Simulated scan of single mutants.
Amino acid sequence: MKTTIFSFCALLVLSFNSASARTVVISDIDDTIKMTGVLNNKLHVGFNGLFSKRAFAGMSELYHEYHDRGYGIYYVSGSPKMIDCRIEDFLVEKDFPQADQRFLKDKISSDTYKFKMESIRNVIAKENPTSLILIGDDTEHDPDVYNDISKEYPGLVEAIYIRAVQDAKLPVSTLMRNFFSSVEIAANEMIRGELDYKGLDNVANGFVEQTKDSGIQLDDFYCPKSGRDEINNLMSHSKLSDTKIVKLLLRVQNKIMKTCKDR
């Protein structure tokens, strides 16, 4: 009888550990998934923060790929809680998964770096994940925050993706990659074995066949008119050398080139 009870308890423990053993994605919002333009004047930023609902093309598809694989998704933003309802509306309307799992600052004046560090620590303490994927942009503190989190939790962070809004120089880190499109993240995740061709195809189509309420780049900010070197690098990778994958990446590259030249 004791042996049976012990075995049952052991199974419960194993089941609990298996359920909690998962990857968690932590994402910024403004200028990472939402087209806000935080480097513009305060009036412009305030207006976009409240009323803009333009999403970066392909990002919701990417996050659904993560969600469908059982990853937890948290949104950590430097936006104030006073516009929380607007943030929620954006996430829900643009079909981003797990929209209720978001952290926003209590006060506008609060230090954004400290707020994001503490929020990510809270997510880690709550989820006890086996790995983290961090997604942000280069307009404020994300590169430094994510780099410092990777040092504070050695071996936990698997990948850091930073959107090139101003194409700023990033901290030196083997984990950190610059990206311009959602497809670059998806392709790198395919290389890591975390995404299959179907997932890459879904994200690529979301990017190329964007709706009127989503976009490729922020006006007056970084846009690679000759495509992006990262796409060329990805096409040359042995895990992405299949003809159908190369064709998919070429479609993305052509979309970037046309959009940037026409803006």
Results as ranks from 00 to 15, higher is better:
residue 68 D to R: 14
residue 184 E to S: 03
residue 263 R to A: 10
residue 58 G to L: 08
residue 144 D to H: 05
residue 192 R to A: 14
residue 72 G to T: 00
residue 127 E to V: 07
residue 46 G to M: 12
residue 189 E to R: 13
residue 38 V to C: 11
residue 146 Y to M: 12
residue 167 D to W: 06
residue 95 D to K: 14
residue 4 T to F: 12
residue 110 S to H: 07
residue 103 F to Y: 15
residue 197 Y to M: 13
residue 217 Q to Y: 15
residue 205 N to L: 13
residue 177 R to V: 09
residue 240 L to R: 02
residue 36 T to Q: 10
residue 207 F to T: 02
residue 118 E to C: 00
residue 101 Q to L: 14
residue 12 L to G: 14
residue 63 Y to M: 15
residue 10 A to R: 13
residue 164 A to K: 02
residue 33 I to K: 04
residue 109 S to Y: 09
residue 203 V to I: 15
residue 80 P to I: 04
residue 216 I to V: 09
residue 5 I to M: 06
residue 76 V to W: 04
residue 174 T to P: 02
residue 260 C to G: 08
residue 255 K to Q: 06
residue 104 L to F: 07
residue 76 V to A: 03
residue 115 F to L: 08
residue 128 N to P: 02
residue 113 Y to D: 07
residue 1 M to G: 14
residue 140 E to C: 10
residue 183 V to S: 01
residue 207 F to E: 06
residue 204 A to V: 03
residue 9 C to S: 13
residue 12 L to W: 07
residue 191 I to E: 01
residue 168 A to D: 11
residue 244 K to N: 14
residue 226 S to E: 11
residue 75 Y to F: 12
residue 17 N to D: 08
residue 180 F to N: 01
residue 52 S to V: 10
residue 41 N to A: 09
residue 23 T to Q: 07
residue 85 C to G: 05
residue 149 I to F: 02
residue 135 I to F: 01
residue 47 F to A: 06
residue 254 N to Q: 13
residue 177 R to T: 15
residue 151 K to F: 07
residue 121 R to T: 09
residue 132 L to R: 00
residue 226 S to F: 10
residue 98 Q to T: 06
residue 54 R to N: 13
residue 208 V to P: 00
residue 85 C to I: 14
residue 53 K to G: 14
residue 71 Y to H: 08
residue 260 C to N: 08
residue 123 V to T: 07
residue 250 L to K: 01
residue 94 K to Y: 13
residue 194 E to P: 05
residue 168 A to T: 01
residue 256 I to E: 03
residue 3 T to Q: 13
residue 97 P to C: 03
residue 112 T to C: 10
residue 135 I to S: 01
residue 24 V to N: 01
residue 181 S to I: 06
residue 18 S to H: 10
residue 119 S to L: 04
residue 168 A to V: 03
residue 182 S to K: 05
residue 189 E to K: 01
residue 139 T to F: 05
residue 23 T to D: 04
residue 112 T to Y: 00
residue 170 L to C: 09
residue 69 R to E: 02
residue 209 E to Y: 06
residue 197 Y to S: 11
residue 198 K to W: 01
residue 241 S to C: 08
residue 258 K to L: 13
residue 183 V to N: 09
residue 250 L to W: 06
residue 16 F to Q: 02
residue 179 F to D: 08
residue 200 L to M: 08
residue 130 T to N: 14
residue 53 K to N: 12
residue 223 C to M: 12
residue 6 F to V: 11
residue 162 I to P: 00
residue 246 V to L: 05
residue 208 V to K: 02
residue 188 N to A: 08
residue 114 K to E: 15
residue 117 M to R: 04
residue 4 T to E: 08
